[in-house]
Simulated assay, not measured.
Amino acid sequence: MSESTVPALPPRTALVTGATSGIGWETARLLAERGCTVIVHGPDTESAHHAVERLVAAGVDRARLRLAVADFSRLSEVRELAAEVRGLHPALDILVNNAAVAAPERHTITGDGHELSLQVNFLAAYLLTRELAGPLSARPGARVINVSSAMHRTASISWSDLNRARRYSRHAAYAQSQLALTVFARAAAPAGATAVSVHPGVCETPLLALYGHEGEPAADGAARVVRLCEPGTELVPGGYYDRTALSPVAPVAAEDRTVRRLCKVADLLVTA
Rank of each mutant, 00 (worst) to 15 (best):
C203Q: 09
P206M: 04
V252N: 02
V225Q: 11
S197T: 01
C203F: 06
A191Q: 15
Y240V: 03
T205S: 11
V198H: 05
E234S: 14
E230M: 15
A173C: 10
L210R: 08
E204G: 10
R164T: 10
Q178V: 13
A219T: 11
T233S: 05
L162A: 11
A222W: 04
V249A: 03
C203S: 11
P190Q: 06
S158V: 10
G192T: 06
H199Y: 14
A175V: 05
G192D: 01
R164I: 08
C203V: 06
R243H: 13
V183G: 07
R186V: 04
C229W: 14
Y241L: 04
Y174P: 08
G232W: 12
L210W: 05
A195N: 14
A173P: 09
A254Q: 01
A187D: 03
R227H: 12
L179Q: 05
A219V: 15
W159P: 05
Y240F: 13
L208I: 12
L210D: 00
L179D: 00
A218D: 14
H171M: 15
V226H: 00
S197F: 00
E204P: 12
H199M: 12
A245G: 13
V196Y: 01
F184M: 06
V196F: 05
V198Q: 08
R164Y: 08
A223I: 06
L228F: 01
S160K: 14
H171V: 10
L228M: 05
S169R: 05
T205D: 14
E234P: 05
V252I: 07
E234L: 10
Q178A: 11
A175L: 04
P251M: 03
R186G: 13
G212M: 03
V196E: 07
A193T: 00
G192V: 00
Y241D: 03
A172G: 12
L210A: 02
Q176Y: 02
T233E: 12
E255G: 04
S158N: 07
S160G: 11
P237G: 06
G239I: 04
A188K: 14
S156P: 01
E230T: 11
V236W: 09
G221Q: 12
T205M: 12
G201H: 07
A219G: 14
V183M: 05
T244Y: 06
V252Q: 08
D220G: 08
A180V: 04
L208K: 09
A172F: 13
A188E: 13
E214K: 11
R164E: 10
E255C: 00
G215S: 09
S156K: 03
P231R: 06
A250K: 03
T233K: 06
E204S: 13
C229H: 15
R166V: 02
A185N: 05
Y174V: 10
P251C: 01
P200V: 09
Y241P: 01
A165D: 08
G221T: 09
A253M: 00
T244K: 05
R227K: 10
T194G: 03
V183K: 01
E214Y: 15
R224F: 12
A245S: 15
A253W: 03
A180S: 13
P206G: 00
V183L: 07
V196N: 02
A253K: 04
